[in-house]
């Protein structure tokens, strides 16, 4: 194994782990102000919005491809189906789409 690659991997691991663990250590036994708690409760929904757009439209050169996959996932989960069903369902839809077009 190459030493500089090994160093790089260890460095990448350290700078990735620190932000993940810090809040648990930093805020241990500490009650945050209500406004901040509210903001932190909002984070998951805001994060999901930013994780989905615009990235989902850019998975292929053809914007339609991501749009169709996203629409399939939206529809399946809107009907109340389980997350795994939405995942597999949208894969099937896109496989059919590429097979046809």
């Amino acid at each position: 194994m190459n030493t500089s690659i090994l160093l790089m991997i260890i460095g990448m691991g350290a700078v990735t782990y620190i932000p993940r663990a810090l809040p648990f250590v930093l805020f241990k036994n500490r009650e945050l102000p209500p406004f901040l708690q509210g903001v932190l409760r909002n984070i998951p929904f805001a994060t999901l919005g930013a994780l989905i757009f615009p990235a989902v439209l850019l998975i292929q050169d053809n914007i339609l491809y991501g749009l169709i996959g996203a629409a399939a996932a939206f529809l399946l989960s809107y009907l109340g189906l389980n997350v795994i069903v939405s995942v597999l369902g949208s894969i099937v839809v896109l496989t059919l789409y590429s097979a046809i077009f």
Partner: peptide, 18 residues
């Protein structure tokens, strides 16, 4: 190629019920 939708489909599947 079609599997590249998987994670986004999961994010959507998590978001939509909420």
């Amino acid at each position: 190629e079609s599997m590249s939708i998987a994670l986004y489909a999961m994010f959507i599947g998590l978001l939509v019920p909420s």
